[in-house]
Design a protein around this nucleic acid. Structure first.
Lengths: 168, 168
DNA sequence: TAAAAGTTTCAATAACTTTTGAAAGATTAG
DNA sequence: CTAATCTTTCAAAAGTTATTGAAACTTTTA
Protein backbone atom coordinates (compact mmCIF):
# COMPACT_ATOMS: atom_id res chain seq x y z
CA UNK A 1 0.00 0.00 0.00
CA UNK A 2 1.28 3.43 -0.96
CA UNK A 3 1.86 5.94 1.80
CA UNK A 4 -0.51 8.48 0.30
CA UNK A 5 -3.34 5.95 0.05
CA UNK A 6 -2.74 4.74 3.59
CA UNK A 7 -2.76 8.29 4.92
CA UNK A 8 -5.99 9.02 3.09
CA UNK A 9 -7.62 5.93 4.49
CA UNK A 10 -6.52 6.68 8.01
CA UNK A 11 -7.88 10.22 7.77
CA UNK A 12 -11.16 8.97 6.42
CA UNK A 13 -11.48 6.19 9.02
CA UNK A 14 -10.69 8.54 11.88
CA UNK A 15 -13.23 11.01 10.53
CA UNK A 16 -16.08 8.57 10.26
CA UNK A 17 -15.34 7.10 13.66
CA UNK A 18 -15.56 10.59 15.07
CA UNK A 19 -19.03 11.22 13.71
CA UNK A 20 -20.24 8.14 15.56
CA UNK A 21 -18.99 9.81 18.73
CA UNK A 22 -20.61 13.16 18.21
CA UNK A 23 -17.41 14.78 17.05
CA UNK A 24 -17.16 16.96 13.98
CA UNK A 25 -15.77 14.95 11.09
CA UNK A 26 -13.50 17.66 9.76
CA UNK A 27 -12.04 18.30 13.18
CA UNK A 28 -11.16 14.63 13.48
CA UNK A 29 -9.66 14.59 10.00
CA UNK A 30 -7.44 17.55 10.76
CA UNK A 31 -6.40 15.78 13.95
CA UNK A 32 -5.69 12.58 12.03
CA UNK A 33 -3.52 14.38 9.51
CA UNK A 34 -1.58 16.13 12.25
CA UNK A 35 -1.16 12.85 14.11
CA UNK A 36 0.56 11.15 11.22
CA UNK A 37 2.70 14.10 10.15
CA UNK A 38 5.96 14.57 12.02
CA UNK A 39 6.41 18.28 11.32
CA UNK A 40 4.15 21.23 12.03
CA UNK A 41 1.69 22.05 9.22
CA UNK A 42 0.37 25.46 8.23
CA UNK A 43 -3.33 26.22 7.88
CA UNK A 44 -2.91 26.59 4.13
CA UNK A 45 -1.39 23.15 3.84
CA UNK A 46 -4.21 21.65 5.91
CA UNK A 47 -6.75 23.33 3.64
CA UNK A 48 -4.98 22.01 0.60
CA UNK A 49 -4.50 18.44 1.81
CA UNK A 50 -8.03 18.00 3.13
CA UNK A 51 -9.81 20.22 0.60
CA UNK A 52 -11.51 22.35 3.17
CA UNK A 53 -12.22 26.06 3.27
CA UNK A 54 -10.33 28.66 5.21
CA UNK A 55 -13.23 29.21 7.62
CA UNK A 56 -13.68 25.56 8.41
CA UNK A 57 -9.95 25.01 8.85
CA UNK A 58 -9.66 27.94 11.20
CA UNK A 59 -12.65 26.98 13.29
CA UNK A 60 -11.73 23.34 13.66
CA UNK A 61 -8.10 24.07 14.43
CA UNK A 62 -9.20 26.41 17.17
CA UNK A 63 -11.47 23.72 18.58
CA UNK A 64 -8.61 21.21 18.58
CA UNK A 65 -6.41 23.67 20.43
CA UNK A 66 -9.29 24.20 22.85
CA UNK A 67 -9.41 20.49 23.51
CA UNK A 68 -5.69 20.56 24.20
CA UNK A 69 -4.91 18.16 21.37
CA UNK A 70 -3.03 20.52 19.08
CA UNK A 71 -0.46 23.24 19.66
CA UNK A 72 0.24 26.39 17.74
CA UNK A 73 3.86 26.58 16.68
CA UNK A 74 5.70 29.68 15.55
CA UNK A 75 8.59 29.09 13.21
CA UNK A 76 11.33 31.72 13.48
CA UNK A 77 11.44 33.93 10.43
CA UNK A 78 8.02 32.76 9.21
CA UNK A 79 4.94 34.86 9.29
CA UNK A 80 2.48 31.96 9.29
CA UNK A 81 1.41 29.86 12.23
CA UNK A 82 1.96 26.13 12.18
CA UNK A 83 0.20 23.36 14.02
CA UNK A 84 1.45 20.26 15.71
CA UNK A 85 -0.44 17.43 17.42
CA UNK A 86 0.48 15.52 20.53
CA UNK A 87 1.55 12.11 19.21
CA UNK A 88 1.38 10.06 22.41
CA UNK A 89 -1.98 8.33 22.16
CA UNK A 90 -2.23 7.72 25.87
CA UNK A 91 -1.86 11.46 26.49
CA UNK A 92 -4.38 12.21 23.75
CA UNK A 93 -6.83 9.81 25.32
CA UNK A 94 -6.40 11.24 28.80
CA UNK A 95 -6.85 14.75 27.49
CA UNK A 96 -10.10 13.80 25.76
CA UNK A 97 -11.38 12.04 28.88
CA UNK A 98 -10.48 15.05 30.98
CA UNK A 99 -12.39 17.41 28.72
CA UNK A 100 -15.46 15.26 28.29
CA UNK A 101 -15.59 14.61 31.99
CA UNK A 102 -15.55 18.32 32.69
CA UNK A 103 -18.06 19.14 29.97
CA UNK A 104 -20.48 16.25 30.52
CA UNK A 105 -20.11 14.19 33.66
CA UNK A 106 -19.84 17.08 36.06
CA UNK A 107 -22.92 18.92 34.77
CA UNK A 108 -24.82 15.62 34.75
CA UNK A 109 -23.99 15.01 38.40
CA UNK A 110 -25.45 18.40 39.27
CA UNK A 111 -28.71 17.64 37.47
CA UNK A 112 -28.99 14.22 39.09
CA UNK A 113 -28.50 15.74 42.52
CA UNK A 114 -31.41 18.09 41.90
CA UNK A 115 -33.65 15.35 40.56
CA UNK A 116 -33.37 13.35 43.75
CA UNK A 117 -35.32 16.10 45.47
CA UNK A 118 -38.55 14.95 43.84
CA UNK A 119 -41.62 15.31 46.06
CA UNK A 120 -41.23 12.30 48.27
CA UNK A 121 -44.46 12.54 50.19
CA UNK A 122 -46.35 10.18 47.96
CA UNK A 123 -44.19 7.11 48.15
CA UNK A 124 -46.05 5.53 45.29
CA UNK A 125 -44.71 3.01 42.87
CA UNK A 126 -43.90 5.57 40.22
CA UNK A 127 -42.04 8.01 42.43
CA UNK A 128 -40.12 5.15 43.99
CA UNK A 129 -39.00 3.80 40.63
CA UNK A 130 -37.94 7.25 39.56
CA UNK A 131 -35.79 8.06 42.56
CA UNK A 132 -34.33 4.56 42.56
CA UNK A 133 -33.15 4.88 39.00
CA UNK A 134 -31.82 8.38 39.55
CA UNK A 135 -29.92 7.28 42.63
CA UNK A 136 -28.42 4.31 40.84
CA UNK A 137 -27.30 6.44 37.94
CA UNK A 138 -25.87 8.94 40.37
CA UNK A 139 -23.86 6.30 42.17
CA UNK A 140 -22.59 4.90 38.93
CA UNK A 141 -21.64 8.24 37.42
CA UNK A 142 -20.06 9.40 40.66
CA UNK A 143 -17.90 6.31 40.82
CA UNK A 144 -16.90 6.63 37.18
CA UNK A 145 -16.05 10.26 37.73
CA UNK A 146 -13.70 9.46 40.58
CA UNK A 147 -12.03 6.61 38.74
CA UNK A 148 -11.47 8.75 35.69
CA UNK A 149 -9.92 11.44 37.86
CA UNK A 150 -7.33 8.97 39.01
CA UNK A 151 -6.78 7.65 35.54
CA UNK A 152 -6.12 11.14 34.23
CA UNK A 153 -3.34 11.52 36.72
CA UNK A 154 -1.90 8.07 36.15
CA UNK A 155 1.09 7.16 34.06
CA UNK A 156 0.45 4.91 31.11
CA UNK A 157 2.56 1.96 32.18
CA UNK A 158 1.31 2.13 35.69
CA UNK A 159 -2.27 2.22 34.54
CA UNK A 160 -2.22 -0.55 31.97
CA UNK A 161 0.12 -2.61 34.05
CA UNK A 162 -2.22 -2.59 36.98
CA UNK A 163 -5.34 -2.97 34.91
CA UNK A 164 -3.91 -6.00 33.19
CA UNK A 165 -2.90 -7.49 36.51
CA UNK A 166 -6.42 -6.80 37.70
CA UNK A 167 -8.16 -8.46 34.82
CA UNK A 168 -5.92 -11.44 34.32
CA UNK B 1 -39.93 19.32 42.63
CA UNK B 2 -42.95 17.58 41.16
CA UNK B 3 -42.50 14.09 39.78
CA UNK B 4 -43.73 15.03 36.33
CA UNK B 5 -41.30 17.93 36.07
CA UNK B 6 -38.43 15.80 37.30
CA UNK B 7 -39.23 13.08 34.77
CA UNK B 8 -39.39 15.63 31.99
CA UNK B 9 -36.05 17.07 32.96
CA UNK B 10 -34.41 13.69 33.18
CA UNK B 11 -35.71 12.74 29.74
CA UNK B 12 -34.49 16.01 28.28
CA UNK B 13 -31.07 15.77 29.96
CA UNK B 14 -30.56 12.19 28.84
CA UNK B 15 -31.56 13.16 25.31
CA UNK B 16 -29.17 16.04 24.99
CA UNK B 17 -26.34 14.06 26.51
CA UNK B 18 -26.97 11.41 23.89
CA UNK B 19 -26.61 13.82 20.98
CA UNK B 20 -23.14 14.70 22.26
CA UNK B 21 -22.30 11.02 21.94
CA UNK B 22 -23.61 10.55 18.43
CA UNK B 23 -26.79 8.88 19.61
CA UNK B 24 -30.21 9.76 18.29
CA UNK B 25 -31.96 12.08 20.74
CA UNK B 26 -35.36 10.43 20.48
CA UNK B 27 -33.89 6.99 21.04
CA UNK B 28 -32.26 8.22 24.23
CA UNK B 29 -35.46 9.88 25.38
CA UNK B 30 -37.44 6.71 24.89
CA UNK B 31 -34.76 4.89 26.83
CA UNK B 32 -34.88 7.48 29.60
CA UNK B 33 -38.64 7.19 29.92
CA UNK B 34 -38.46 3.40 30.05
CA UNK B 35 -35.67 3.59 32.63
CA UNK B 36 -37.72 5.57 35.09
CA UNK B 37 -40.98 3.72 34.56
CA UNK B 38 -41.45 0.53 36.54
CA UNK B 39 -44.01 -1.12 34.27
CA UNK B 40 -43.89 -1.98 30.58
CA UNK B 41 -45.16 0.79 28.28
CA UNK B 42 -46.94 0.41 24.95
CA UNK B 43 -45.81 2.15 21.79
CA UNK B 44 -48.91 4.33 21.87
CA UNK B 45 -48.11 5.52 25.36
CA UNK B 46 -44.54 6.29 24.37
CA UNK B 47 -45.80 8.29 21.41
CA UNK B 48 -48.18 10.16 23.64
CA UNK B 49 -45.75 10.92 26.45
CA UNK B 50 -42.91 12.03 24.22
CA UNK B 51 -45.01 13.56 21.43
CA UNK B 52 -43.40 11.56 18.67
CA UNK B 53 -44.84 9.93 15.57
CA UNK B 54 -45.64 6.29 15.10
CA UNK B 55 -42.79 5.82 12.65
CA UNK B 56 -40.18 7.38 14.85
CA UNK B 57 -41.35 5.47 17.89
CA UNK B 58 -41.25 2.19 16.03
CA UNK B 59 -37.84 2.79 14.54
CA UNK B 60 -36.20 3.93 17.75
CA UNK B 61 -37.74 1.18 19.83
CA UNK B 62 -36.38 -1.35 17.39
CA UNK B 63 -32.95 0.21 17.63
CA UNK B 64 -33.07 0.04 21.42
CA UNK B 65 -34.02 -3.63 21.25
CA UNK B 66 -31.15 -4.10 18.82
CA UNK B 67 -28.77 -2.58 21.31
CA UNK B 68 -30.08 -5.00 23.91
CA UNK B 69 -31.30 -2.22 26.17
CA UNK B 70 -35.03 -2.80 25.89
CA UNK B 71 -37.18 -5.90 25.81
CA UNK B 72 -40.47 -6.57 24.11
CA UNK B 73 -43.07 -7.78 26.59
CA UNK B 74 -46.31 -9.52 25.74
CA UNK B 75 -49.08 -9.05 28.26
CA UNK B 76 -51.51 -11.95 28.37
CA UNK B 77 -54.87 -11.06 26.90
CA UNK B 78 -53.51 -7.88 25.27
CA UNK B 79 -53.02 -7.48 21.58
CA UNK B 80 -50.40 -4.74 21.86
CA UNK B 81 -46.73 -5.13 22.57
CA UNK B 82 -45.18 -3.46 25.58
CA UNK B 83 -41.62 -2.41 26.25
CA UNK B 84 -39.46 -2.64 29.30
CA UNK B 85 -35.92 -1.40 29.92
CA UNK B 86 -33.15 -3.03 31.88
CA UNK B 87 -32.90 -0.92 35.03
CA UNK B 88 -29.49 -1.99 36.35
CA UNK B 89 -27.21 0.78 35.13
CA UNK B 90 -24.11 -1.36 35.36
CA UNK B 91 -25.71 -3.88 33.03
CA UNK B 92 -26.85 -1.11 30.71
CA UNK B 93 -23.34 0.28 30.62
CA UNK B 94 -21.77 -3.10 29.92
CA UNK B 95 -24.26 -3.74 27.15
CA UNK B 96 -23.47 -0.42 25.49
CA UNK B 97 -19.73 -1.04 25.78
CA UNK B 98 -20.17 -4.49 24.31
CA UNK B 99 -22.06 -3.17 21.30
CA UNK B 100 -19.81 -0.21 20.61
CA UNK B 101 -16.78 -2.41 20.94
CA UNK B 102 -18.17 -4.81 18.39
CA UNK B 103 -19.34 -2.09 16.03
CA UNK B 104 -16.33 0.22 16.28
CA UNK B 105 -13.22 -1.09 17.96
CA UNK B 106 -13.08 -4.38 16.13
CA UNK B 107 -13.47 -2.88 12.64
CA UNK B 108 -10.92 -0.21 13.56
CA UNK B 109 -8.40 -2.85 14.55
CA UNK B 110 -8.78 -4.47 11.15
CA UNK B 111 -8.15 -1.20 9.34
CA UNK B 112 -5.10 -0.43 11.48
CA UNK B 113 -3.65 -3.83 10.76
CA UNK B 114 -3.91 -3.15 7.04
CA UNK B 115 -2.43 0.30 7.33
CA UNK B 116 0.75 -1.02 8.87
CA UNK B 117 1.52 -2.65 5.54
CA UNK B 118 2.45 0.68 4.01
CA UNK B 119 5.31 0.48 1.52
CA UNK B 120 8.26 0.20 3.83
CA UNK B 121 11.04 0.42 1.26
CA UNK B 122 11.49 4.15 1.61
CA UNK B 123 12.20 4.50 5.30
CA UNK B 124 11.85 8.21 5.07
CA UNK B 125 10.80 10.55 7.82
CA UNK B 126 7.19 10.68 6.69
CA UNK B 127 6.64 6.97 6.30
CA UNK B 128 8.33 6.37 9.64
CA UNK B 129 6.08 8.85 11.44
CA UNK B 130 3.03 7.31 9.84
CA UNK B 131 3.74 3.71 10.80
CA UNK B 132 4.84 4.78 14.27
CA UNK B 133 1.56 6.50 14.93
CA UNK B 134 -0.47 3.66 13.48
CA UNK B 135 1.40 1.13 15.59
CA UNK B 136 0.91 3.16 18.73
CA UNK B 137 -2.78 3.53 18.11
CA UNK B 138 -2.99 -0.16 17.38
CA UNK B 139 -1.33 -1.06 20.65
CA UNK B 140 -3.55 1.28 22.55
CA UNK B 141 -6.80 0.14 20.95
CA UNK B 142 -5.80 -3.50 21.26
CA UNK B 143 -5.16 -3.12 24.95
CA UNK B 144 -8.39 -1.25 25.49
CA UNK B 145 -10.25 -3.93 23.57
CA UNK B 146 -8.92 -6.68 25.82
CA UNK B 147 -9.61 -4.77 28.99
CA UNK B 148 -13.15 -4.04 27.93
CA UNK B 149 -13.67 -7.72 27.18
CA UNK B 150 -12.81 -8.52 30.74
CA UNK B 151 -14.94 -5.73 32.07
CA UNK B 152 -17.95 -6.96 30.14
CA UNK B 153 -17.67 -10.30 31.85
CA UNK B 154 -17.01 -8.85 35.28
CA UNK B 155 -19.47 -8.45 38.10
CA UNK B 156 -20.14 -4.90 39.21
CA UNK B 157 -18.88 -5.17 42.77
CA UNK B 158 -15.84 -7.07 41.70
CA UNK B 159 -15.04 -4.52 39.06
CA UNK B 160 -15.48 -1.34 41.05
CA UNK B 161 -14.03 -2.87 44.15
CA UNK B 162 -10.82 -3.75 42.41
CA UNK B 163 -10.67 -0.57 40.42
CA UNK B 164 -11.04 1.48 43.57
CA UNK B 165 -8.39 -0.55 45.31
CA UNK B 166 -6.21 -0.04 42.26
CA UNK B 167 -6.54 3.70 42.12
CA UNK B 168 -6.44 4.51 45.83
C1' DT C 1 2.08 54.85 8.61
C1' DA C 2 0.62 52.31 4.60
C1' DA C 3 0.50 48.21 2.33
C1' DA C 4 1.01 43.41 2.66
C1' DA C 5 0.30 39.16 4.90
C1' DG C 6 -2.22 36.58 7.81
C1' DT C 7 -6.41 35.47 10.79
C1' DT C 8 -11.15 35.45 12.21
C1' DT C 9 -16.02 35.99 11.71
C1' DC C 10 -20.57 35.05 10.15
C1' DA C 11 -24.60 34.91 7.11
C1' DA C 12 -25.90 32.15 3.39
C1' DT C 13 -25.86 27.63 1.69
C1' DA C 14 -25.08 22.86 1.48
C1' DA C 15 -24.99 18.37 3.50
C1' DC C 16 -26.68 15.33 6.55
C1' DT C 17 -30.00 13.34 9.93
C1' DT C 18 -34.39 12.66 11.87
C1' DT C 19 -39.26 12.69 11.80
C1' DT C 20 -43.60 12.25 9.88
C1' DG C 21 -47.71 9.86 8.45
C1' DA C 22 -50.04 7.50 5.02
C1' DA C 23 -49.93 3.10 2.93
C1' DA C 24 -48.72 -1.64 2.98
C1' DG C 25 -48.03 -5.65 5.64
C1' DA C 26 -48.99 -8.80 9.53
C1' DT C 27 -51.55 -11.11 12.80
C1' DT C 28 -55.51 -12.39 15.42
C1' DA C 29 -60.41 -13.03 16.63
C1' DG C 30 -64.68 -14.27 15.37
C1' DC D 1 -62.27 -16.20 5.38
C1' DT D 2 -62.42 -11.36 6.46
C1' DA D 3 -62.63 -7.56 9.24
C1' DA D 4 -60.34 -5.43 12.87
C1' DT D 5 -56.29 -4.27 15.16
C1' DC D 6 -51.67 -3.58 15.43
C1' DT D 7 -46.87 -3.08 13.26
C1' DT D 8 -43.61 -1.76 9.84
C1' DT D 9 -41.91 0.72 5.94
C1' DC D 10 -40.40 4.52 3.30
C1' DA D 11 -40.47 8.76 0.55
C1' DA D 12 -41.14 13.40 1.42
C1' DA D 13 -40.59 17.21 4.72
C1' DA D 14 -38.56 19.27 8.61
C1' DG D 15 -34.87 20.02 11.43
C1' DT D 16 -30.08 20.14 12.52
C1' DT D 17 -25.24 20.75 11.87
C1' DA D 18 -21.20 21.88 9.10
C1' DT D 19 -19.04 24.42 5.37
C1' DT D 20 -18.09 28.10 2.52
C1' DG D 21 -15.96 32.35 1.19
C1' DA D 22 -16.08 37.13 1.13
C1' DA D 23 -15.50 40.86 4.27
C1' DA D 24 -13.69 42.64 8.48
C1' DC D 25 -10.14 42.64 11.47
C1' DT D 26 -5.26 42.26 13.18
C1' DT D 27 -0.45 42.13 12.92
C1' DT D 28 3.87 42.80 10.71
C1' DT D 29 7.15 44.80 7.67
C1' DA D 30 9.49 48.30 5.41
Amino acid sequence: MKLEAAKAQFIQTWGSLATQWGINKTMAQIHALLLITPDPISQDDLMEELSISRGSANMNIRELIDWGLVDRVIKPGERKEFFLAEKDIWKVFRQIVKERKKRELEPLLKVLEQLKAVDGEKKNREAKAFTDTIENIQKFVGQADKSLDTMIKADENWFWGNLIKLIK
